[in-house]
Design a protein around this nucleic acid. Structure first.
Length: 591
RNA sequence: GCGUCUGUAGCGAAGUGGAUAUCGCAGUGGCUUCCGAAGCCAAAGGCCGUAGGUUCGAAUCCUAUCAGACGCACCA
């Protein structure tokens, strides 16, 4: 469905061409002075120079040539050269009717369907998810859903960290505690137990202890590194144990992501890319991309235009071992082989930007990816505590994600119980949805790249620009629709009028807000900016609430008008539902 | 040292070269016989870090500068 702003632009551009000016000057934007008009065109002022005419003269000419178009309720030239535009209500109601008839609410599918891999996991096996994992999960899930909605084939990959020293530390630690386990019996030939020798909570205890130990105990560290080497080279017992670590851990990680409404299509792990490494390294050597520098195998990624230092991409350490760069490059090889993506988006802490720049350059230079493949780094800011330093709990530890979610839900539960009469079970269920909305909206409404102060009080606030405010607005609409249906015993209709009647200010504002939906979605997708969706639904909620106060829908006596209002708020509700679905937030029936 | 990001009201944030810079929180003053007050309305609060430049026009583009955060090959 063509965007309303384009329809208006097209008509204004006709005016410009009719008067002998370039079409491009006809671009119309949403007004930044809503007190003066709904839409504006600033083209006359840009055109003034080229045509050596006063901007206001151009604006007047253009307005004169198109002012009889029924699209406009008002179109006028204003000093120094603005063209101010109000559209007719009949255009708005017709547009809303068309939106309401479309399952996608007027938002076209992309014409260039791409396959996109979104990498937004970053969880590590054997370590609990903590607050730092929230941002990539929440932002990534929403980016994924935006692209899916636009019609792309999108694959979200959890990309778990399941390799490296932590695994060695755990194995060695277990060996010391429970040496009798068959995994450590070098002569063991039988089947290893199907059951893991530890629970998730035990596993979570083991890693921090083992990690601490390795910092003071040289021999322990050495043994762990040795274990990694053995694991890498197919030690049967260690491999079986490692599988247990992954299985126990992944089950728990999945449960937590579920709580966040975050779902991955793909649960790939770093280790899955390892089989691709030998061939990749050989290829880079054979093709002459890689060379030895200071004992390590590297690929230069410097470019002449660089003004900053650009260290090479390291493929193999001087001791011949692989490192993060190697697995990330191999992961690209793997993704190309499995999915042949047109775009890979990394939702990662922004501190890794330079690192990924090097990885991207390296994979282009060595032709691991086709030149048409887009590699995007979507860096997000650090989550800080109130002191401005990376977030810590009161005792200096890192807050677990499930504790955080639990705290938020508890706060929300208390508020529900103090404001409403409700059974405990129902209140708990609602608190879960509202709490998640508070948490996610609080995160998503900020621009992703910025650092971010984590403040539970602000997140659980129900007032102003918050998730609960959005949900509250939706619940209000649902409540009216239910009342209407009850009183009229008929389904709620798509019954927009022809727009020739009287329309109040708040009513027009609501319509203007609603018809912006498809334009907004496209911008959010182009800019990978979920916060634009948040901003939009906040505006929409404000418009709805103002409208709500000025018009008594249920008490309205003009039945035709009432039907139109019901149609209107129903459409608005559908817009909300679509938007929060994309943000991966759920709305309760009441709250 | 080189580089990246961020400086917008007491606090948190939007802002695609256009008019009087936009929201929210906190604070101030109103609004419940009426569809959910988790709401609505109003007033107050600003040298958009600073200084130059480009432009008819700059929070936005360029240069310099200050402040904060972060990054710069064998960690992930």
């Amino acid at each position: 469905m063509e965007k309303l702003i384009h329809i208006i632009t097209k008509e204004v551009a006709k005016g410009f061409t009719a008067c002998g000016y370039e079409e491009t000057y006809g671009t119309v934007t949403v007004s930044n002075r809503p007190d003066l008009c709904q839409y504006q065109c600033n083209g006359s002022m840009s055109a003034a120079k080229q045509y050596k005419k006063a901007p206001i003269a151009i604006a007047n000419e253009v307005v004169d040539s198109i002012k009889n178009n029924p699209l406009f309720d008002k179109i006028e030239a204003v000093a120094p050269g603005f063209i101010n535009i109000n559209v007719s209500c009949s255009v708005l109601t017709a547009y809303m009717k068309e939106m309401a008839d479309d399952a996608r609410l007027g938002c076209d599918l992309t014409t260039e369907k791409k396959t996109i891999v979104v990498d937004y996991g970053g969880a590590n096996v054997a370590k609990p998810l903590h607050v730092g994992h929230m941002r990539p999960a929440v932002i990534g899930e929403s980016i994924k859903r935006i692209y899916k909605f636009m019609g792309h084939e999108v694959i979200g990959d959890a990309h778990l960290g399941d390799w490296g020293l932590p695994m060695g530390l755990i194995i060695v630690y277990l060996k010391e505690k429970e040496p009798a386990l068959p995994y450590f019996d070098e002569g063991f030939q039988g089947e290893y137990p199907a059951e893991a020798p530890f629970t998730i909570s035990e596993l979570e205890m083991i890693y921090p202890e083992a990690s601490k130990r390795s910092k003071s105990d040289e021999a322990f560290l050495q043994e762990a590194q040795d274990a990694v080497f053995k694991l890498q080279n197919g030690h049967r017992g260690y491999y079986a144990l490692w599988q247990h670590i992954i299985n126990v851990s992944v089950a728990d990680i999945k449960r937590l992501y579920d709580d966040l409404n975050v779902y991955f299509e793909l649960w790939k792990k770093e280790s899955d890319a390892r089989p691709y490494i030998p061939d990749m390294v050989q290829y880079m050597k054979d093709e002459g991309y890689a060379h030895i520098s200071e004992g390590a195998l590297v690929v230069d990624v410097k470019e002449d235009t660089d003004t900053k230092e650009m260290p090479p991409c390291m493929i193999l350490k001087s001791n011949g071992a692989t490192l993060y760069d190697t697995t990330d490059l191999a992961t690209i090889v793997e993704r190309v082989k499995l999915f042949n993506p047109d775009q890979i988006i990394y939702v990662v802490d922004k501190r890794q930007e330079l690192y990924f720049e090097r990885i991207f350059r390296c994979s282009r230079k060595t032709k691991l990816v086709d030149s048409h493949v887009e590699l995007d780094f979507l860096g997000f800011g650090t989550m800080n505590g109130k002191d401005g330093k990376p977030f810590k709990t009161r005792d200096g530890g890192i807050m677990r994600l499930d504790d955080l979610i639990g705290n938020v839900n508890e706060e929300v539960y208390k508020k529900i119980m103090s404001n409403r009469e409700m059974g405990e079970e129902e209140a708990r269920d609602i608190a879960k949805k509202v709490g998640l909305a508070a948490l996610k909206y609080g995160d998503l409404s900020n621009q992703a790249t910025k650092d971010y102060v984590f403040d539970v009080d602000r997140f659980t606030s129900f007032e102003g620009n918050t998730g609960p405010y959005i949900l509250y607005t939706m619940v209000r609409i649902k409540s009216i629709l239910a009342k209407y249906k009850e009183a009229n015993q008929e389904p709620v209709l798509n019954a927009f009028l022809d727009g020739t009647g009287e329309y109040g200010k708040s009513e027009i504002e609501l319509m203007l807000s609603a018809v912006r939906f498809n334009d907004m979605m496209e911008h959010a997708a182009d800019e990978m900016a979920p916060h634009k969706i948040c901003q939009y639904i906040f505006d929409l909620a404000n418009a709805l609430n103002t409208f709500y106060h000025e018009n008594k829908i249920i008490a309205e006596e003009n039945k035709e008008k009432q039907k139109e209002w019901i149609s209107m708020i129903q459409l608005v509700l559908r817009i909300f539902e679509l938007c929060i679905e994309i943000l991966a937030i759920e709305a309760p029936e009441k709250m």
